[in-house]
């Protein structure tokens, strides 16, 4: 029964991962096909590569802004859309709709909207505000990439939270009301603990996704201006397919893989301290 799954895992996950690890010890040039074993040279180079360090910082900044903003907004929307009011299904559909739009189409539309002479600056101009060049004037390019990514995936996280909120027993709120708890106390003492397993799931998925952002950077800013929006996954792509240094790109990919894996394991390990019903 497990054989197809196991085969899929071996050929689609394990083999590519092992290939990347193998390539990271070579000077593989995919354009010419030349490859030679060079030991740990790529890893030594990585530590000394000032660009890689700058790119790693950009990646952390991106993740540190994206994850809390995305999760807070998604939870806020989920709480709002969990209330009973007319048209809430329509609002749910509206906020979820970016999830089903192709990332490329979504990003290209935003590129047009964010242009210096695009609609955002046009409307700001009507209000007498001289808007910045969102994709060129720092720090707005990074903020723009984060914002485009936040709204792309917000709906998915919102749905996770919404499902969790609907699983909170109604009687808990009723009894807490009898005990005199206000809305904030109910949210803090009942809602958050009950949905904490979902918060863990959403945190793991959002953090892992933040370190894999690629299409938005490629299409919105091309990593620029300068290196200001170049993140690790894009830097890996540049090294592999523009500079044709697949060996070095593989070393970068291995490091990113280990880092994300470590982060996920760490989140899993500390779950018992804050996730309800986890021991």
């Amino acid at each position: 029964m497990a054989a197809p799954v196991l085969l899929g895992f071996i050929f689609l996950v394990l083999y590519p991962v092992l290939s990347v690890i193998r390539d990271s010890f070579t000077s593989y040039n995919p354009l010419s096909g030349d490859a030679a074993y060079i030991g740990a040279d790529n890893y030594t180079r990585l530590v000394q590569d000032e660009t890689a360090i700058e790119v790693a910082k950009n990646t952390l900044i991106f993740a540190c802004i994206l994850v809390p903003v995305n999760m807070a907004l998604a939870l806020f929307l989920a709480v709002l859309l969990n209330m009973h009011f007319k048209g809430r299904t329509t609002f749910r559909a509206i906020f979820f709709s970016p999830v089903i739009v192709s990332t490329v189409a979504w990003t290209i539309v935003w590129k047009y909207i964010l242009q210096d002479d695009g609609p955002i600056n046009y409307f700001l101009g009507l209000a007498g505000v001289d808007g910045p060049n969102w994709l060129r004037d720092n720090p707005w390019p990074m903020m723009s990439v984060v914002m485009v990514q936040v709204f792309k995936n917000l709906g998915m996280n919102m749905i996770f939270f919404l499902a969790a909120l609907q699983g909170v027993p109604e009687e808990m709120y009723e009894s807490s009301e009898i005990d005199g708890a206000n809305r904030w106390q109910q949210f803090k003492k009942i809602t958050l603990p009950f949905i904490s397993p979902t918060i863990l799931l959403v945190a793991i998925l959002t953090i892992a996704g933040a370190f894999q952002v690629f299409a938005q950077v490629l299409l919105l800013t091309g990593g620029g201006p300068g290196l200001s929006t170049t993140v690790l996954s894009y830097y890996i792509f540049i090294n592999a397919f523009q500079i044709f240094d697949l060996g070095y790109a593989s070393a970068l990919a291995v490091c990113l893989f280990v880092f994300v894996m470590g982060l996920t394991v760490a989140q899993w390990q500390i779950r018992t301290r804050w996730v309800f019903r986890e021991v």
């Binding site: 242009q115 210096d116 002479d117 060049n133 969102w134 994709l135």
Partner: peptide, 11 residues
């Protein structure tokens, strides 16, 4: 200065 050449991001 002259603004006679489109700046980046201007079509």
């Amino acid at each position: 200065k002259d603004k006679s050449f489109p700046a980046p991001g201007v079509s």
